[in-house]
Design a binder for these strands. Structure first.
Lengths: 203, 203, 203, 203
DNA sequence: GATGAATGAGGTTTCATTCAT
DNA sequence: AATGAATGAAACCTCATTCAT
């Protein structure tokens, strides 16, 4: 956790630091990223960095949390709360699209997450055992889909959740070119959804 | 490319070095992996390392090539050559399973590939533009599936190839726990295939 | 260029570092000189060295600049500015003597310059094409001498400039024994000047 | 001294080694030059190198001797033996020209000598005190010139010898561009001689 | 005598973190 | 709180030389 000092900082300065961190961690893996570069780009002294964070990992953890929260905020909460008004596949579509919107508006955050996912050692260190909240989310959703009779009742929800989770990531990866996303490329999202729907719907 | 000296080494020693390299690179990303550790674990002098490889990256590249070749060798070549004897989904199943067999027998090689995939900078440096041979392979296969009338003729092959590629990886990831695979867990592979088949087959 | 950090250092410490550098580079060629030795002798950590200079070459370049400036400062500027009050050979004598005075007071700087001059590769790297400002200086002087009618009007100024430049160096070399100069050995400078004067004066 | 083994080598092989050594030492100072490069370029095993020479310095010493001898061989011995038939300045001219001829035919040997001259430590180690045979040669010549009444009887022969020695080197340097010499550029040699003659002749 | 693999000391450089002001 | 200089462990890499075959 960042220190109290950090949270007492003027918003603007805190932003500058976060920005600089994002910039560095989106370009380089945790180990290659340099504290010096972050401090420099944020325009703060290296010493200050250690007044705000315990160490490099402390900032990194905080960043991951921030990112996770931000990503969640892209999901239309109303739809989830009133999910009964929508079909399962409509909800799924919303989840997919929220991922895309998030990536479009925060392209630099995408590789940060991906790099962490690849670094099992670090991942374990940060989250210990419970490292797939993402899957849990999809699993809940799928269960609901089964209950509503839209999803194949035989389906293995753990497997499906994992697949959906992975596909979301991959979709973002596919449409992101050089850190940019062509949001208008709507067709492709629906193609994937079409594929998924055929794959898992109840027949 | 490793030096001639390296290839002149007795098989046993070469293996020790490769083993040590795999050990290090499967645990740590390229940047965190240490030449010193590799040399130590291989039981050779640090100086010797540099008689065999130009630098850390040289060994790494060589390792990736070796891994790629090994992975390919797990695909049943006969089936590919006589693909007309098999249905498309039978072929796809073979490809999936080959990935699993490879992962089961070489569990430490899996994270090496995954870490590389996450390090865009390194990936680019090693392979430049043509970095998705994996996708190409699936695209060929899918095209064949369309020609045989088994795959949805409307399907976007680029998208599908990407998805299949990603799903293969994810499947391996899913069944690998602490570097071990439960091969007998056959059911899950077929579940995924079932899902995929429903998703993309011609109706 | 040294970093800002270096220039922020207390004068005393900066001097210690420069001293240590001079000590090392006056004894050993650029390639044999060791950063470690410099850091040790300056009483700073090796890491600090790299906070002050980009690398060994950075310090070396800076040292050469410093030396060049210092050497220039030994020339009596008044004489150059009011050169019309003096004969050409008087000016030349002043230039010669300035070289001697510089060498006498900074004996360790002499071999540094000489070693660089011998390392064509390094020389080229540092100065690119324009690496004989020394010659230019003498050429200007000689031109002036011709205009005043003191120097043989037929003389090839490029050649003469080169010769004078070389002779200055050699004179210093000659009178420097074990890094010390016997300044009182005035006679020898005049002998050389006598020789030069006879060689190039207008008849 | 090279080992007997070296001298027993077939002429052709010995030449190859010497060639490779010249190539390396003409490009790099003693310390930067690499034994490995020499062995490689000579097409011999690294181990063999140490069968022929005690160490890098041993080869270097031998090379310097060879060069010195070769350089001497360019002086017209007949003229020296029958020096009475020629004037002093004719002899001096011959010595100058021999230096030029040597440089023209062995351009790579020139920088080797120059680099050594700049490395006082090495120079001392190789030749101890008596490191100016070159000067001695010129001193003998000048003495003879005085005796014949052609050279200023007041002249300080040590100084003049030094100057002549230095000027010879510098002349070579001046006309050598990129390791090549324009021998037809005869005029310049005579200009320098003219200058020298005026400088030191008896009046 | 020839070979080429093996060695390790030693060099340069990087960087997270500490600390004095 | 802020600064930025100081540190040193540890990484990569080079190369002369030795040694077993």
């Amino acid at each position: 956790m960042p220190t109290e000092t950090f949270f007492n900082l003027p918003e603007e300065k805190r932003q500058r630091i976060i920005e600089a961190a994002i910039d560095e961690f989106s370009r380089y893996s945790f180990h290659k990223a340099r504290v010096t570069a972050i401090a420099d780009n944020a325009g703060i002294a290296k010493g200050s960095f250690y007044q705000y964070f315990e160490d490099k990992k402390d900032l990194y953890k905080y960043l991951m949390e921030t990112i996770a929260k931000k990503k969640m905020s892209y999901i239309n909460k109303d739809m989830l709360l009133n999910r009964d008004k929508y079909g399962f596949f409509q909800l799924l579509r919303e989840v997919f699209l929220s991922g895309i919107r998030f990536a479009k508006e925060n392209p630099r955050l995408v590789p940060i997450g991906e790099m962490l996912l690849a670094d099992k050692e670090l991942l374990h260190e940060l989250y210990g055992e419970n490292m797939d909240r993402n899957n849990d989310f999809f699993k809940q959703l799928l269960k609901y889909g089964q209950e509503k009779g839209e999803v194949d009742p035989e389906a293995d929800l753990d497997l499906l959740a994992h697949m959906l989770s992975v596909l979301t990531y991959s979709l973002v990866d596919l449409v992101m070119e050089d850190g940019k996303i062509d949001m208008d490329d709507m067709e492709i999202y629906d193609k994937m959804l079409y594929f998924v729907e055929n794959g898992i719907k109840k027949r």
